[in-house]
Design a protein around this nucleic acid. Structure first.
Lengths: 146, 146
DNA sequence: ATTCTATTTTGTAATAATTACAATTTTGTA
DNA sequence: TACAAAATTGTAATTATTACAAAATAGAAT
């Protein structure tokens, strides 16, 4: 039972973060859902299995995971922060129609930059916005049928 | 007196947007302040000369200017939206120390992309975050002197 | 296993950014 | 100058996030 958390226990131990069940659950959730969920989605999902969970705990846990560079937050939506397990460099695409966020695997010479305009760079994020593949298809079908 | 707005009147006319003083003032403000201000900064500045101005008007005006692609909003800060006159493609750098946002003139092969991961791209934004030139210098001085 | 202290979790209250909406005012046109 | 459509204003509501104090828990030491 505890074994399903082994991977996440190791991650926290490696970063000298105190191991707690909210942290393990959040990490597991993000590892299993690469949909860039916001706090509300994470909270609502985990609340079912762990009814005492507090929203504040989700905020706090995400914060400590972020500080340790285990996860990252995306500001792409412009309202809520979205969260993402950090696995390899990639960019993001936001569909203005359905609101979903996709990983974009294109590379870019600036992704690994440590200096830009004389400033010291610690993070680089590329955001693409438009209409996703699926929404475009739906739109075409709508035009053809009706 | 009206002549100082000539440029902005033309922009609005060209886009068939009804000409109103809040819109002219906001446009002028963004044209003269390339600091990527948020709504509060714009509102507070313009309120001095135009005391009846409402915050909602600032939101509405920015929205219509954005829809017409005269300005763009940046989500780089993660809390408030920042606004920018659209003049040539460029990326942005946010200093985590002083909070200022700088234009970064580096180019990138993905800036003009219209497709990414099969999705239709309408906007591309590159966000760099770290410590700006000035804050780095200050930090060095602090270490050397004290 | 038990105890202890620092840290975390919880729940509520506060804050900040944005949106909704109805009444009033203004714009552009006739 | 008058009119209809659209914009502005001010207030209230909503949403995302942060602050904070009390209760609970983790990990170290015994």
């Amino acid at each position: 039972m505890i074994s399903m958390y082994k991977k996440y226990v190791k991650i926290l131990k490696d970063h000298a973060i105190i191991i707690t069940s909210p942290r393990l659950d959040i990490l597991k959730f993000l590892d299993e859902h690469h949909t860039h969920p916001d706090v509300e989605e994470i909270y609502t999902s985990l609340k079912k299995k762990h009814p005492s969970l507090s929203r504040t705990t989700v905020y706090n846990s995400l914060e400590i995971l972020k500080k340790n560079k285990i996860i990252q937050s995306l500001t792409i939506s412009g309202s809520e922060l979205r969260y993402d397990i950090k696995e390899g460099l990639h960019h993001h695409f936001l569909c203005k129609h359905c609101g979903r966020i996709f990983d974009i695997s294109i590379t870019c010479p600036n992704m690994n930059r440590t200096v830009a305009g004389g400033h010291h760079v610690e993070e680089v994020q590329g955001y693409f916005k438009g209409i996703c593949k699926k929404c475009q298809t739906k739109e075409k079908e709508r035009r053809n049928n009706g």
